[in-house]
Amino acid sequence: MGERVLVIGGTGPTGVPLVRGLVERGHEVTILHRGTHESEATPAEVRHIHLDPYDEGALREAAEGARYDTVIAMYGRLRRIAEAWAGRTGRLISVGGVPAYRGWMNPVLAGPGGLPIPVPEDAPLVGDPDEDAKGYRIVRTEQAVFAHHPTATHIRYPYVYGPHQLAPREWCVVRRVLDGRRRIVVADQGLTLHHHGYTENLAHALLLAFEQPTRCVGRIYNAADDQVLTVRQVIDTVAAALGHTFEVVSLPYELAVPARPLLMQPAPEHRVLDLSRLRADLGYRDLVPPHEALAHTARWLAEHPPEPGGPEERILTDPFDYPAEDALMDAWTTLRAGFPEPAFATAPAYGLAYSGPGGRPRANPDFTA
Rank of each mutant, 00 (worst) to 15 (best):
R169S: 13
L51R: 11
G2I: 03
T42F: 07
K134Y: 15
P252H: 06
D366S: 14
V29E: 01
R80S: 14
S276R: 12
R88P: 04
R140E: 14
V23D: 02
H304T: 00
L32I: 01
A347P: 11
R77A: 12
A369N: 12
L166C: 07
H244P: 05
A256Y: 09
R360F: 07
P308S: 05
V272Q: 09
A84P: 04
P306Y: 01
Q265G: 14
P158L: 00
Q212E: 09
P150Q: 02
L207S: 03
L125Y: 09
P308H: 04
D69C: 07
P268E: 05
V126L: 09
V231A: 00
M1C: 06
A73W: 07
Y322D: 02
I72N: 02
R279F: 07
R314D: 09
H37N: 15
R360Q: 15
H48G: 08
N364E: 13
G162W: 00
T141S: 13
G190Y: 03
L352D: 15
A345D: 15
E3P: 06
R169Y: 13
L115M: 15
L206S: 06
G180E: 05
I315N: 12
Y350V: 07
E325F: 04
L263N: 10
V71I: 08
G10V: 09
A73S: 12
P53M: 01
D366E: 15
H37E: 09
R360E: 15
V249Y: 10
L6M: 10
F320E: 05
P120R: 12
V272M: 09
A363E: 15
E247Q: 15
V119W: 08
E121Q: 10
G135M: 00
A84T: 07
D286N: 13
H296N: 13
I315Q: 12
I49D: 02
V119S: 03
L328Y: 02
H50G: 03
V46Y: 00
G21I: 02
E40Y: 01
Y350Q: 13
S250L: 02
Q143H: 12
V231W: 04
H149S: 07
D188F: 00
V174I: 00
L207K: 02
T153M: 09
E292L: 11
A66V: 11
R169N: 11
R314V: 12
T237F: 09
L328K: 01
E211N: 07
P163E: 05
G114I: 00
A100L: 09
A345C: 08
E83D: 14
R156H: 05
V98G: 07
P13Q: 14
V7M: 02
V29H: 07
D281R: 05
V186W: 01
T237G: 08
G310W: 05
G351E: 02
